[in-house]
Computed example of a mutant assay.
Amino acid sequence: MPGNTDLLTLQTPCLLLDEARLRANVARMKAHLDSLGVAFRPHLKTAKSLDVARIAMPSSAGPATISTLREAEYFAAGGVCDMIYAVGIAPAKLGRVSAIRASGADLAVILDSVEQADAVAAHAARSGDAIPALIEVDADGHRSGVAPTDTATLVAIGRRVVSGGAELRGVLLHAGDSYALNDPAAIAQAAEAERVAAVTAAEALRNAGLPCPVVSVGATPTARYARDLTGVTEVRAGVFMFGDLYQAGVSSVAMGDLVLSVLATVIGHQKAKGWIIADAGWMALSRDRSTAKQAVDQGYGVVCDLAGQPYPDLIVADANQEHGIIALRKGSTATLPDLPVGSRIRILTNHACATGAQYDRYHVLDGAGGISAIWPRINGW
């Protein structure tokens, strides 16, 4: 949708995307991973858009990481052939996985139990589809996965996968605890711990005579601050493309790197309370309040002018379903800006994934403050 649609005429709330920042973020990450000699498999769970994927992926065919089978179907239809479904596989989904693979996509699954391995092996034997599987390894106790030193379980899972004619493709890790860190040196240590866990698990499989061609790691903080990825074949990261206030709070991105913002309209005031009311509540911004646990609580979002410059200490302090309550941060000595009814503002939000999920399109900003395109995005599972 070419043209230069003025931000004053768009229906609000809507989701804005700064294309120049997106491209810069992707280029920075690719250069860093190139310097470490590893492949890049971008995670598209935040983007959910072919237009964004084509900027992020090494080629139009991939590789890519996805988090729902709806994403896998959508990206496969758009020509993405190489994907990892990076959520532990539910046996009832294997038929759908095979249908996507039958369309021409090389879609791999992940698992971390003998029960899942049995289901994959049985499905492969029954269907003739040698579904590739990676074993999820627990890098830091954050979520799912087999302990990297639990050789017996790793080998048992690997042998079950191949017993029915499925393919054991490797190991996959996610250093989720890195999201709780904010010191680059500590994040670099988490990246090294992730690497060591990955290599340890891979060696356990190979020493048992099992294949492990892929050693896949990935989280935005560790991807950015990793210093050595010896033994790793690929890195997955996704939210770095957009950034958000949470990621800025853990030093994974800078405030000037944030790509997404919600365009909103001022609809009222409660002057005695020092409130400005906007038409973007938690349905538009998401319920995510993750920065409340950080050194700087950003409320439901940081309020900016139309050029994307934050007003001093102005945040969405509270939110109802369709109302955003804008106020100065507690303790601030700043002056509440004069924003009459009808004024347009942009809001930077805590979690790009959660905010993006509220919308079916991106309004793409050009360099002159207008809209150069509309990029569709999808939701659902």
Rank of each mutant, 00 (worst) to 15 (best):
T151K: 01
A130H: 09
G170H: 05
S163K: 04
I110E: 08
A124M: 10
A156R: 11
I110R: 04
S178V: 10
V171Y: 01
R169F: 10
G141N: 07
D112Y: 13
G141W: 07
A121W: 05
G141R: 06
I110W: 04
I135G: 01
S144H: 13
S178N: 10
D150L: 02
P132C: 14
S163C: 05
A124L: 10
S163W: 03
Q116W: 13
V146D: 02
D129W: 08
P148G: 05
I135F: 03
T153R: 11
P148A: 08
G141A: 03
P148Y: 01
L172R: 04
E167W: 00
G164E: 12
V114W: 10
D177P: 13
A125Q: 04
H123N: 13
A119V: 11
A117D: 09
R160F: 10
V171T: 03
S178A: 14
A119Y: 06
A175W: 01
G141M: 06
Q116K: 13
G158D: 04
I131D: 04
G164Q: 13
G170C: 03
V120I: 15
A122K: 00
A125R: 06
V171R: 02
G165K: 10
L172F: 09
L154I: 01
D177Q: 15
A119K: 07
D129R: 12
E167D: 04
V146G: 01
D138N: 14
I135A: 02
D150I: 01
A122F: 00
L111F: 08
I157C: 11
D138F: 04
H174R: 04
R160E: 13
A147T: 05
E115Y: 10
A122T: 00
V161N: 01
V171L: 00
H123M: 15
A117F: 08
